[in-house]
Design a protein around this nucleic acid. Structure first.
Length: 826
DNA sequence: AGCACGCCGACT
DNA sequence: GTCGGCGTGCTC
């Protein structure tokens, strides 16, 4: 660097959305040779120069340092935690998901990598207690600080001091005492998870030579021979493993090292996730249809241009086989592959399958791994040791290089959208990464999202279809049971007479049954028990939901509300609230079938002692006759002996108040029906509903996705829903309901004023609300939202971002937080 | 979101 | 005079 200085542009954790931008810091001489983009640093920030963590976005030489430019204090990483691609992705996410660059970067890294910063105030050793008290003077707060610090043995964490002060702010007193040389601020960074290291033995000379050296003394030094022989076969191995398999001791290894046969190195050891018993891989054989899909997809993957394809394969058509072949082809081309699944429950079986095919080159990433495991898998991926990654949503950030293939299985699933900030969608991130690496994105589904199918129909995605079930299995016969009839017949329980009969027959045959309970949105929906009518919003054609707080039916889109009618406005019948929990169904079944074991699988059953997998294993191995469960039982699980599946009530997800309700119900019902009869026996499915004539239900029963899609896409077109337009949801939250509502009103008014400008006047933008959020009060904070339906393009995102920044800095919005989200899932 | 700066009332 | 409460504006 001639003459100039080196500066780092840093994304800061302390920067809020409204002030987020790259901040420039001077790189001190000592750090200049080692600091690089993608490393994390500790920097001073704000008037008080409090220590803040940041990530270096870029390094740049400056001719003249700017006036106000503080120095980087510490370099926190020895090597970058994000590569160039990751840094670009973070910036892209910030723009797309209305979050800070740092928040985006943080979401991309395993939690084990994270530092927690501790700010500790200490009384300087040269200062006596009397001097400290004198320096505190008459300030009550300063005296209290000194007293507290001495009581704590001379130093205390900032957090503790704050806690001891309660509502009063110790800040000014701490600063004054620091200024007067009484206190010193120490900042330490500690990481939750450390690196684990191990000894590795590496063969230092060619195998023939090594064996030649130890062979003559094979009799007298059998251990030296055994170790060398094993190491010749392996090339390198952990010292622990070598000793374990040969019975040698570390002394033998050291002596071999001395003879120059091997070298001992300290290396990072990876805490591997145990894939469980791995069977030998059966060679993948594809049927004609699968082969055609594979060839088409492989042609796209090898074309070297980014592409997206939809693999639409009916349940049981063998999409996984196609994935396996594609992954193999990708690896053969020297590229890496990423496979995403919607549920953690699906990763163990996929991990086993992939490990059988690709050995130790498979890594797994999902949120319920322990921090250490997750961190280690991340490092294995980054080092290039793992070239195939299986995981849930956040695995989309796996630090793979030379990405050639990304598979999103069950692409329509809502779990690909993050619930927390940044509220990214794994599918969009995957698309971004594929574009950067010229990789192929494969979206797999039996019931594609309407958006994806639309892209396929309009030629944006390539479409491949698998319409035949593997092994030519027959689809189960499906019966729709009318719960209104049951109610009239005096059966108000959750098991109808036909379902009860079917269960009895199945029990008698010694076959298993699964009952599926669709709990989402339970008990908020109101319907007529007589005619099945569901109250609808007059302006939005969505169903109204009941709010017990004010006893009214409300629309979550536009804010319309009306009192709960005493009886059904259509027929005068009795209105009923839907809601049957798994526990209630379980106890009902227990009284219907007193000597039969009934297994329950839901979030509660899983969190208590038994793991999800253990419960399913029990169901499979002990052949428990009946399994009752929520969403979890519907997904990709194959049970030979299950010949009956029942849907307790199809209605609950159908009458939710969002545009995706129909799609989600269709998908769920189709999956559940597909669960029956996976083995040699033909299955039977039963769907209970109050609205048996509903198209979504009858189409799902027939597994007729094509008709469902045609209907749904027209509905979306008419209502201006995705894929024709996108939704931006602006949410304000705060302690006082009125203030939150008024903040939302101002958001709406500001936006309306801007949209009257010349460049916006012609564009189709619609604003709905303010309306209460679906969960109107969380943690004592009221939440209201304004929904904007418009094309999600750069200019619209900029407008929303600007609106957010203005709102966050508006003094009228004191105590109110405002944030934005696109196409939310709730 | 912190934190300083500036202004003002209260207590000494 | 100080101290501390509160409104305003900035953060490399």
């Amino acid at each position: 660097m001639e003459g100039g200085v080196l500066a780092a542009r840093v994304a800061l954790s302390a920067a809020t959305y409204a002030i987020d931008k790259p901040y420039t810091y001077l790189v001190p001489q000592g750090l200049a040779p080692t600091l690089r983009a993608g490393m994390r640093v500790l920097v001073p920030f704000g008037a008080g120069n409090r220590r803040t963590e940041g990530i270096v976005l870029s390094m740049e030489p400056l001719q003249t340092p700017p006036e106000k430019c503080k120095p980087v204090l510490t370099q926190l990483d020895e090597q970058p935690v994000l590569e160039e691609e990751g840094l670009h992705l973070a910036v892209w996410m910030a723009e797309r998901y209305f979050c800070t660059v740092y928040e985006a970067a943080r979401a991309m890294l395993p939690a084990g990598l994270y530092f927690s910063l501790q700010n500790r105030y200490r009384v300087r050793p040269e200062v006596s207690q009397a001097q400290a008290e004198a320096a505190a003077g008459k300030s009550e707060l300063a005296q209290k600080v000194v007293e507290l610090l001495y009581a704590a043995g001379g130093s205390a964490e900032l957090g503790h001091i704050r806690a001891a002060f309660g509502a009063r702010d110790p800040g000014p007193a701490l600063r004054r005492l620091t200024e007067r040389g009484v206190l010193a601020l120490e900042t330490s960074a500690s990481r939750g998870v450390g690196d684990k290291r191990e000894r590795v033995a590496v063969l230092a000379i060619p195998p023939e030579e090594a064996l030649a050296q130890v062979s003559p003394r094979r009799r007298t030094a059998p251990m030296r021979y055994a170790v060398t022989e094993l190491l010749c076969a392996l090339g390198e191995a952990s010292a622990k493993e070598l000793c374990y398999f040969t019975g040698a001791s570390m002394a033998t290894l050291r002596s071999l090292a001395k003879s120059g046969i091997l070298t001992l190195e300290e290396r990072e050891a990876f805490r591997r996730v145990d894939p469980g018993p791995v069977e030998a891989a059966e060679p993948v054989t594809l049927n004609e249809e699968q082969q055609r899909a594979f060839e088409g997809l492989d042609a796209l993957a090898s074309a070297g241009r980014a592409a997206a394809a939809l693999l639409w394969g009916v349940t049981g058509s063998g999409k996984t086989q196609v994935y396996l072949k594609l992954i193999q082809a990708t690896l053969d081309r020297g590229k890496s592959a990423l496979v995403l699944v919607p549920e953690i429950a699906l990763t163990p079986q996929l991990l086993r399958l992939f490990t059988a095919h690709f050995g130790s080159g498979v890594a797994v990433l999902h949120s319920s791994l322990r921090a250490g495991e997750r961190y280690d898998e991340w490092k294995r991926i980054r080092s290039g040791a793992a070239r195939v990654v299986v995981g849930t949503r956040s695995a989309v950030f796996a630090p793979l290089s030379d990405l050639g293939l990304v598979v999103l299985d069950e692409e329509q699933e809502g779990s690909y959208k993050s619930e927390q900030v940044p509220k990214y969608h794994a599918q969009e991130v995957a698309k971004y990464r594929c574009a950067r690496w010229n990789a192929l994105l494969v979206l797999g589904s039996a019931t594609p999202s309407v958006e994806s199918m639309y892209q396929a129909q309009t030629g944006v995605y390539h479409l491949f279809t698998l319409s035949r079930r593997y092994n030519r299995q027959k689809l189960p016969s499906v019966e729709i049971v009318d719960l209104k009839e049951e109610l009239r017949g005096g059966n108000g329980g959750s098991i109808s007479a036909p379902l009860r009969r079917a269960l009895e027959e199945n029990l008698a045959r010694g076959e298993q049954s699964i009952l599926f309970l669709n709990r989402r949105g339970a008990s908020r929906m109101v319907s007529c028990g007589e005619c099945g009518a569901v109250p609808t919003c007059p302006r939005c054609s969505v169903y109204l939901t009941y709010h017990s707080a004010n006893g009214r039916l409300m629309c979550h889109y536009c804010g319309h509300s009306e009192p709960l009618p005493r009886s059904c406005p259509q027929c005068g019948g009795l209105l009923s609230f839907q809601g049957a929990g798994t526990q209630r169904v379980q106890s009902e079944l227990e009284s219907l079938f007193p000597h039969t074991e009934i297994l329950r699988l839901d979030a509660d059953a899983v969190s208590a002692t038994h793991s999800h997998e253990a419960l399913l294993d029990r169901f499979r191995q002990e052949k428990v006759p009946i399994l009752v469960g929520t969403q979890m039982v519907a997904k990709g699980l194959d049970f030979e002996n299950v010949t009956l599946v029942g849907v307790i009530s199809a209605d609950q997800s159908l009458y939710l108040d969002d545009y995706r309700a129909a799609e989600r119900t269709f998908s769920l019902l189709t999956q559940v029906v597909g669960r029956a009869g996976r083995g040699s026996k033909t299955g039977q499915a039963m769907i209970q509903t109050f609205t048996p004539e509903n198209d979504v239900i009858t189409l799902a029963a027939r597994q007729d996705y094509g008709s469902f899609y045609r209907q749904e896409i027209e509905m979306r077109r008419l209502r201006g829903c995705p894929p024709f337009r996108d939704l931006f949801v602006l949410t304000a939250s705060g302690l006082e309901e009125g203030a939150v509502f008024r903040a939302c009103l101002r958001l709406r008014e500001t936006l309306e004023a801007w949209l009257r400008g010349p460049e916006w006047r012609e564009r189709p933008v619609q604003i709905l609300g303010p309306a209460p959020a679906s969960v109107a009060k969380v943690n004592n904070r009221y939440r209201y939202r304004v929904t904007v339906s418009a094309r999600n393009d750069r200019s619209m995102r900029r407008l929303v971002a600007h609106l957010l920044r203005c709102a966050q800095q508006d003094k009228q919005n004191r105590g109110i937080s405002v944030y934005a989200d696109t196409d939310p899932m709730d």
